[in-house]
Design a protein around this nucleic acid. Structure first.
Length: 280
DNA sequence: AATACACTCAACCGCTCTGCC
DNA sequence: AGGCAGAGCGGTTGAGTGTAT
């Protein structure tokens, strides 16, 4: 007989999502949450299976997702965590706020794997490639050294640990530098922001609902350097994504010093999202 | 400019896990 | 304990895009 399909597939749409479908899904989830993925498509008026909706939401539409390539630091984290956890992408993703398992898996397969091989490291075992394999490896055009891609030399190939508390904590590590971009919700695209803004202005939304959109441990910045307050519209503005990309570069680039960082801080301007202050 | 090839990543498939009855 | 349903996960695919010839 075989397994019963996860949903009735007849008449269901497959393939790339349209903007209209995205809007329907986001609107529905922001309004109702996602109690049951199986029933969601019908309720939201989508001709998709629940699984497809869940994937689209978690991998692309979730407001707390980061965009763009993984930073050098995030790449280091992935390599380190992969050495400990193996291909447990969801586990690895849980250590990188705003990144999805799918995104990390793709990045691993398309970038990191290649990079490691070019450095003579077996991406599967994280140990040096055997002499035979070494001969076939390509020399990196960029002349990348293992130190430069952040290989954790102390890493050993161990069985996946059950307790994540033993793993190296990304947030704690970054906090040593006094700044962590992972704490900041970067929300994109603007269509989603509009919907969030609409939801915020809807009087039926509660503070508890708003917490849904941001990491549980996210703390709203309080000083004027991290937020701007628009008294006219009574809105709280957060930094834009470009501001943080700039910061990320400055922090990871030895060519920049503290004065450059201060300059960048002073130039922060573009608001990423705006929510009514009264909502908080 | 046209074509072939390489690369990326969103999305799908099928399996496993988890919780409920 | 066993069966079932729903959710989650990891492997894989293929369309779209970029680059080389």
């Amino acid at each position: 007989m075989g397994r019963k399909p996860c949903c009735e597939k007849v008449g269901l749409k497959k393939g790339p999502w349209t903007a209209e479908e995205d809007k329907k899904l986001v609107t529905f989830i922001l309004t109702n949450g996602h109690c049951c993925w199986r029933d969601l498509p019908k309720l939201a008026g989508l001709l998709r299976c629940g699984k497809s909706c869940r994937l689209r939401w978690t991998n692309y539409l979730r407001p707390d997702l980061k965009r763009g390539l993984l930073s050098e630091y995030e790449e280091q984290m992935v390599i380190h965590l992969h050495a400990q956890l193996g291909n447990r992408w969801a586990k690895i993703a849980s250590h990188l706020p705003g990144r999805t398992d799918n995104e990390i898996k793709n990045h691993w397969n398309t970038h990191i794997k290649k990079k490691l091989r070019e450095m003579g490291i077996d991406p599967l075992t994280h140990s040096p490639l055997s002499p035979g394999e070494e001969q076939t490896k390509q020399v990196s055009k960029a002349g990348v050294k293992s130190e430069e891609v952040g290989i954790f030399k102390e890493s050993t190939i161990t069985e996946a640990k059950e307790e994540d508390s033993t793993l190296f904590d990304p947030v704690e590590t970054v906090n040593n530098d006094g700044f962590c971009i992972d704490e900041v919700p970067l929300i994109e695209p603007h269509e989603i922001l509009d919907l969030v803004t609409c939801s915020c202005t809807n009087s039926s939304r509660s503070l508890e609902d708003l917490h849904y959109y941001f990491p549980a441990d996210f703390e709203w910045p309080s000083d004027s350097a991290t937020t701007t307050t628009d008294t006219e519209s009574n809105c709280l503005s957060l930094w834009g994504i470009d501001d943080f990309s700039t910061w990320d570069l400055l922090i990871n680039d030895d060519d920049h010093d503290d004065s450059d960082r201060k300059l960048a801080l002073d130039s922060l301007s573009s608001p990423l999202i705006q929510c009514p202050k009264t909502a908080f």
